[in-house]
Simulated scan of single mutants.
Amino acid sequence: MPLSVLHVSMPVEAGVAAYVSAAAADQVRRGWRVTVAAPPYGPLRDRLAALGVTHLAWEAARSPGLSTVGEARALRRIVRGVDPDVVHLHSAKAGLVGRLVLRGRRPTVYQPHGWSWLACQGAMTRAAIAWERMAARWTAAVVCVGDGEAAAGRAHGLSARVVRNGVDLARFVPADEDDRLRARAALGLPEHVRLALCVGRVTRQKGQDTLLRAWPRVLGACPDALLVIVGDGELRAGLEDEAAAGVLFAGARSDVRPWYAACDVVVMPSRWEGLPLTALEAMACARPVVAFDVPGLREVVSEESGALVTAGDLDGLTHALAVRLLDPSLAWREGQLAALRSKEFDAGATMEALARLTAEVAGQG
């Protein structure tokens, strides 16, 4: 009998959605019976439909609350109907609801994609850590996407298996100067502007608020620079209202490859990360990455392929961006080295490792 896997995800866009759809597609190709339970909207639903993967509607809010009771009932019905060999829970909300529902009665994989307590403050941080410790007893395997994420778990007594994130190197390929000009023409961007790109949900985690505080200083050094923020999220409206000149909010995009091709440098001012697909995609497209030095990003970005800046250091962020915007040859050289580095993060190896772990959890390894 083919292995039956149920993936559960509340996020339906950005990196988690891309990961879930890639894992589902890989497992379908292996002949497994794969189902994804997720909210019935957004890019994830569309990707699954294009792949022919079964999608079941699971309405879920981002944060715990009164709706969690109904979410648990709905997920219990889905699990009973699918009757999977393995349930794979992605991110904090699915990890919470799924483990409360299953309580270890089925082989359960939990993949935080960034630990829940990193988004909390004060007593909520302690409560989130305590929950993760308690829920570990109901989890056959915790999967971290990078060594830094796993180390953060170990620091709080949580053991995890590392299956590093990977990038589809057949889809994300180095972009040359002709590609840059074509992408800018297609996107309606000026040909000669110096362009910094920030891709990701517009949230506290991704740090676009910090980047916008630094941007006027970047413009002071490089007046013809343009910052493009690709993505949507709960902070977008407020940040868009407050943004200074030289900033374009492009919204969420189903295909970010033209934006990587169009830019000179990618910036990631994240407060925390697991191991971000955005950085890997940018590097595979031969673009240097300027990032805050946090776990996950420091596993990917090196001084040869961009710059790591002390988290929250506006002067350091300004300098790192301005240097690359003012020196296209430096940005180009770093981009070429970034493309070479990205080959160490091939998605094929990631999915092979995940399949082995899933089969092992199901007792078929």
Rank of each mutant, 00 (worst) to 15 (best):
T108C: 01
S159Y: 00
G42H: 08
M10R: 09
A261V: 10
G296K: 13
T203H: 09
A128Y: 07
A24V: 07
C198S: 14
E13M: 13
V323S: 02
D176A: 14
A186E: 14
L321M: 11
E360W: 15
A282N: 04
A225K: 04
S91P: 00
G70L: 06
R213I: 01
E59L: 13
G65A: 06
A74I: 09
A141Y: 05
G122F: 13
L56Q: 08
G157H: 09
V290W: 10
H88Y: 13
A282I: 09
R213S: 03
V265S: 06
K93W: 01
A128K: 12
E13Q: 09
A50T: 06
A150H: 11
H55K: 06
L297E: 01
A25T: 10
L212A: 03
P107K: 12
R76M: 07
E149H: 12
V20G: 06
A349P: 00
S9D: 08
M1C: 04
E240H: 03
G335A: 02
R29T: 00
P174Y: 11
T278C: 05
P2I: 10
S116Y: 08
V265H: 10
E299T: 13
Q364A: 10
L96H: 13
G306W: 14
D264M: 12
A185P: 03
A38Y: 11
P39T: 02
R154V: 00
R137V: 14
V267R: 13
C144G: 07
G316Q: 06
E240V: 03
L100A: 08
H90R: 05
Q121Y: 15
L227H: 06
V323Y: 00
A186I: 11
S329E: 02
E299I: 12
L357A: 05
E177L: 08
L89E: 08
R164M: 03
P216N: 15
A320K: 01
I78P: 05
C285E: 06
V79W: 06
L75E: 08
L102S: 01
A307C: 09
A338F: 04
V53E: 06
D224T: 07
G231F: 05
P43E: 07
M124R: 14
L317A: 00
L239Q: 04
A331T: 10
D179K: 03
A331N: 11
L239T: 07
V79P: 09
V142A: 01
G335N: 08
K93V: 04
A307E: 10
K343N: 00
L226Y: 02
S342Q: 05
V256K: 02
R133N: 14
P328E: 09
R201P: 00
Y19W: 15
V199C: 07
L227I: 03
L354G: 04
T278E: 01
G316S: 00
